[in-house]
Deep mutational scan, measured.
Amino acid sequence: TTITITINGEELRIRGDHEEIHKILKAWEEDHNDEEIVRLIRELAER
């Protein structure tokens, strides 16, 4: 699965399995701050 998210003008492409993507979207849905979401995404992007 690949998704693209733009946060603060920075486009981040994430490839991951369903569970990893779900974790990010769940954090977003629960209204975590952008920095935390960006950190989760970067961790995935670095793999």
Rank of each mutant, 00 (worst) to 15 (best):
I21S: 01
R13Y: 06
L40N: 02
E43R: 03
E46A: 04
G16E: 03
N33L: 15
L12C: 02
E35L: 12
R39S: 07
H22G: 10
I41K: 00
E43I: 07
W28F: 06
T4K: 12
E10G: 04
I14K: 00
L40C: 05
L12Y: 15
A27F: 08
E19G: 09
H32C: 11
T4G: 02
N8V: 03
T6C: 13
I41S: 00
E10D: 07
D34E: 10
R15D: 08
D34A: 11
I21H: 01
R39H: 05
R47A: 15
H32D: 10
D31W: 07
A45L: 13
E29C: 04
W28G: 01
H18I: 15
I37D: 00
L12N: 02
I37P: 00
E11M: 08
G9S: 04
T1D: 10
T6R: 11
W28P: 00
E36W: 07
E20L: 06
E35A: 11
R39I: 06
I37M: 12
D31L: 11
H18K: 11
D31N: 14
H32G: 09
R13H: 14
R47W: 15
R15E: 11
N33Q: 09
A45Q: 05
E46L: 06
R42Y: 15
T6Y: 14
A27D: 05
L25D: 00
L40D: 01
E10H: 07
E35S: 07
L25E: 02
L44F: 06
R15W: 13
E19D: 12
G16V: 09
L12G: 00
K26C: 05
A27I: 11
K23G: 10
L44I: 05
V38C: 05
I3Y: 08
N33M: 15
T2I: 14
H18T: 12
E43Y: 06
H32L: 10
R42W: 13
I5V: 11
H22C: 07
I24C: 02
N8W: 06
R13D: 05
I3D: 01
R13I: 15
N8P: 01
N8M: 11
I21V: 09
K26N: 10
N33H: 13
I5F: 09
E20C: 04
R13W: 15
E19K: 08
E11T: 13
E20G: 05
I5G: 00
I37H: 02
T1W: 11
R47L: 15
G9C: 05
I24W: 05
H18W: 15
A27R: 12
R47E: 15
E29K: 12
A27Y: 07
A27G: 07
I7K: 01
I24A: 03
K26F: 08
W28A: 02
E10L: 09
D17G: 07
E20Y: 05
E46V: 04
E19Q: 10
E29D: 09
I14H: 01
E20Q: 03
N8E: 10
T4W: 14
N33E: 11
E46M: 03
A45K: 02
N8I: 03
T4F: 12
E19N: 10
N33D: 10
D31M: 13
D17V: 07
T2C: 08
L12W: 14
E10C: 08
E11F: 07
I5W: 02
G9N: 05
I3W: 12
T6W: 14
D34Y: 14
H32S: 14
G16P: 02
D17T: 14
L25G: 01
E30I: 10
L12P: 00
W28Y: 13
I41P: 00
E30V: 10
R42H: 05
K23I: 11
G16F: 05
D34G: 10
I24D: 00
E10W: 05
I41C: 02
E20T: 07
R15H: 14
I3L: 11
I21F: 05
H32R: 15
I7A: 01
E10Q: 11
R13Q: 14
T2E: 14
H22I: 04
D17E: 12
E43K: 03
T1K: 10
R42T: 08
T1I: 14
N33G: 11
K23M: 13
L12S: 02
R15I: 15
R15P: 08
W28C: 02
D34C: 14
E20I: 04
T2A: 08
E11S: 09
R42M: 13
G9W: 04
I3G: 02
N33K: 06
E30M: 13
L40I: 13
I3S: 02
E43A: 03
A45N: 06
E36H: 10
L44G: 00
H32W: 11
T4A: 08
V38H: 08
I24S: 01
I7C: 12
L12E: 01
L44K: 01
E20V: 06
T6N: 10
E43W: 12
G9I: 02
H18C: 14
W28D: 00
W28T: 01
D34Q: 07
E20F: 09
R42N: 09
E36A: 11
N33I: 14
E30R: 13
R47Y: 15
E46Y: 05
E30W: 10
K23D: 06
E46H: 04
E29I: 12
I37R: 02
E11A: 08
I14V: 07
L40F: 05
R39N: 09
I41G: 00
K23W: 14
H22L: 15
R15M: 12
H22M: 14
W28V: 03
I7Q: 01
G16H: 03
H22Y: 11
R47V: 15
H32T: 13
L25Y: 07
I14T: 01
G16A: 09
H22V: 13
L44Q: 02
E29L: 10
T6H: 11
I37Q: 01
R42P: 00
E35T: 10
L40W: 04
H22E: 13
A27Q: 12
D17R: 06
K26S: 10
I5N: 00
K23T: 11
L25K: 06
T1P: 08
R39G: 05
L40H: 04
T1G: 09
T4I: 14
I21E: 01
R13F: 14
E43M: 05
A27S: 08
D17C: 04
E19F: 10
G9Y: 04
R42G: 05
L25S: 02
I41M: 05
E30N: 12
T4D: 03
V38N: 04
E11R: 09
E19V: 10
E20P: 02
E11W: 06
T2P: 03
T2K: 04
K26Q: 14
A45T: 04
I14W: 03
E30C: 04
G16M: 07
I21N: 01
W28S: 01
E11D: 08
G9K: 02
I14Q: 00
